[in-house]
Write a protein that binds this DNA or RNA. Structure first.
Lengths: 177, 177
DNA sequence: AATTTCATGTAACCAGTTACATGATTCA
DNA sequence: TGAATCATGTAACTGGTTACATGAAATT
């Protein structure tokens, strides 16, 4: 939400709309979470709401970032990418990346992607070891268990993330001055 | 947890171990969630715990599925795969798949994968439309925004899932009698 | 003798989901 | 005039995380 508010002042209602109608919807968020979250952010001094019109219209509160909010947002996207992030919060990693270019310099973004590649490789090593163990455990010409196939998807998934990170990094480098 | 208990009677402690030491750890779960969850499942009559030893040893409760629990587990894995599942609960879809072969027939599994392919294609259409919109919005020879690149990952991700589902289906078909 | 592991659990805190409530405004 | 949309919010239910508590058994 801080990332969205940073792009332009926005109301709670329009935040809901973003989650409903764009791929941001991947990150869920319903009125029942957005309004309380805005209230929390306000209480922490990270956003400030101002009423757009004072006339007969139903008031519409536009929220914008405070300087504390901007600081917090930069801190959030700039966090080191840990293996834990890759495994348990891959979506957050991508979300942080998606807001980065408006907040930090190009080479911070590139280092971020390099770290994603590193952590993917680490996780892949561990998953592949498990995958091999499952092969030897059964061994034969029966069909693979769905459990083993599911693990195969996990591996394919981290490979895709790693490949994407490498390509994205190269693409960003290509446009460096 | 029902899926794990179905494989063999297991204690709360050993369930914790599974999540700590295998790729199942991807699905989180800590003692603070496992023990209360076991209690809930017990209360709902889906699992039954029996004490392993009555001697001086600290009692160790082994849980096994009741017939209601088995029914519920089969119901869970057999649910239709919706687009909502693919988008918001991809992990659950893979988890259901991973437990399937012990619970339902081969062709139910194959139909499950076919449905995954369908729903991926639907989601891909929608994401690609958004992706194209972001291209035309900026248009030029500047570097792509990290937001657009992040969406690119989403697309790569669903492509991987679709490709995996097709391959897994073919592999399962190859071993059909 | 001290530490680690086995083994089970509880409590405070936090936050998301669903569903509901309210009332103004715009559109058919 | 009735329905949909704009716009903001609340409440009950649910359940996860972290951290803590307890004590026996095995290991060093």
């Amino acid at each position: 939400m801080l990332g969205l508010i940073a792009q332009a002042p926005i109301s709670g209602y329009d935040l809901c709309k973003v989650f409903e109608t764009t791929p941001m919807g991947h990150y869920s968020a319903s009125p029942g979470s957005i309004y309380p979250a805005l209230k929390r952010l306000d209480k922490r001094g990270l956003v400030a709401g101002r009423v757009e019109k004072g006339s007969t219209l139903r008031p519409r509160r536009l929220f914008e970032l405070t300087s504390d909010g901007h600081e917090e947002l930069v801190r959030w996207v700039s966090q080191p990418v840990t293996r834990r992030d890759i495994v348990w919060a891959e979506d957050d990693v991508l979300l942080r990346f998606g807001f980065m270019d408006a907040l930090v310099s190009r080479d911070v973004v590139v280092r971020f992607l390099d770290e994603v590649v590193r952590q993917c490789s680490a996780e892949l090593d561990s998953l592949q070891a498990h995958h091999r163990k499952m092969r030897t455990a059964v061994s034969g010409d029966e069909a693979p268990s769905t459990g083993r196939l599911a693990l195969g998807y996990g591996i394919a998934s981290y490979r895709t993330l790693r490949r994407w990170a490498k390509q994205a990094r190269d693409e960003l480098r290509r446009f460096e001055d």
